[in-house]
Design a protein around this nucleic acid. Sequence first.
DNA 1: CAAATACGAGAGCACTGCTCTTGCTTTGTC
DNA 2: GACAAAGCAAGAGCAGTGCTCTCGTATTTG
Lengths: 253, 253
Amino acid sequence: MLSYLFTDLSSDRLEDMNASRTARERARSELTQEIKEAARRQLSVSGAQALSLRAVARELGMVSSALYRYFASRDELLTALIIDAYEALAAEIEAADRAALSADFRGRWEAACRATRAWATAHPHEYALLYGSPVPGYHAPETTIASGSRVPIALMTIVRDAHEAGALTLRDEEPLPPTLTDQAVRITEFLGSDIPNDVVIRSVTAWTQLFGMITFELFGQYANSLDPADTFFDYSVDRMADLIGLPETDQVE
Amino acid sequence: MLSYLFTDLSSDRLEDMNASRTARERARSELTQEIKEAARRQLSVSGAQALSLRAVARELGMVSSALYRYFASRDELLTALIIDAYEALAAEIEAADRAALSADFRGRWEAACRATRAWATAHPHEYALLYGSPVPGYHAPETTIASGSRVPIALMTIVRDAHEAGALTLRDEEPLPPTLTDQAVRITEFLGSDIPNDVVIRSVTAWTQLFGMITFELFGQYANSLDPADTFFDYSVDRMADLIGLPETDQVE
DNA sequence: CAAATACGAGAGCACTGCTCTTGCTTTGTC
DNA sequence: GACAAAGCAAGAGCAGTGCTCTCGTATTTG
């Protein structure tokens, strides 16, 4: 008994803050996690549209109304899944980036893009949840856009590193329209760097291209044309690296 | 009475083939149209997710089961709306293209892209239906992918015209990977032209960029960064024109 | 005119998200 | 240690959904 108490206390100390305290709170956070897992499982087979609170409750052997103690609505559950998915994707991208040679900026860009695509094809329904049509009246709360921005930040970090290493291909600085300059400055400030404005904007263009490409592939727009899209993907990723001005890999090795 | 009969017959002759024949068939095609209109109306305010057969039936003063004489399922209704939307978007793009100077290929490209964005922002829910996440178990029937391809074809036509006019900026032909060459050849054959393979692929890249950009804007990924995305849009459209090799506008006027 | 066909209405099934009430258990506080 | 407060699961119920089936009526076809 006493030993149980002690181990409980010590393990509480070791675990996250939210897992400490009373048994009820522990049970609550555990069940919250189980609900999300069941929902994620259901999501990954049938899609967000078919995600049913009642089915989740059934799978956990509880009644549907009990679920509302943990998530106030279906939307709130979806929001939780969205945040988790954003974090998972961002983590994947960051890991792929870290695994590449830190001075091979084009290689890092390619690795990050490939990781994005790999995650998307492995979790199509979760990808659709993040980058597909927003659900009916659903408007993303602040919390999701915060974790959502981790993905573009991960990509922009590579550009920033390349610029700070003086590796970016310089080009004749065509001046940007004022509005665009302002927006570029705001993004640069946010990143805490001094990337040239047009490079920032071009990077955003590359970002939209990347996700446009993956979205089209996953949502079936390539039917009968680019059906295995692997080579096209790599090709486009390289064109976007050109657009940003990332140096060729062979000239840095 | 008799005059009514006569005018009916004559108007039948004047109208489309499907509107001729018996009164029942006329009523049927009219009601089919009315159902689609009501559904479209409902779609444009609440989104596809919220489109309800029963609500459509209610709006038309009929009972829900009667609707099933016209559309076998909700999915079939959605499919009809998708086809109509693809056609509407393609028509808009083609019109914008025609309205531009036929020899100003970059101008035509910009006009087509802007028309796409304009249609998307004017009909966000229909855009989401076309380019957002596919609905639950829904897998696009052949008919929709056929009308869906009218959009990229409209864009590729501009590139084809530019190439046939010898206006495309030539570049050092880096050879494409074999798979990509095959796919490019297939697309070129489909278009009935001899656009260089890498130009075809770059055009596809530009196509994905365009829709990636619009999707991100409409689905709220720009929150707090590029919020009014107008200038960014124009900028990126120009970068894609560069990528394809479309000549600067001022050098053709 | 008669048979075949198309049609609208209604009832009904299985399902959904969500609310509210009812008992029970775990908490924190005198 | 007793007790009120808060947290919890269960059940019933509401309003809504897509979809099916039956039934009487209207229209078209032979």
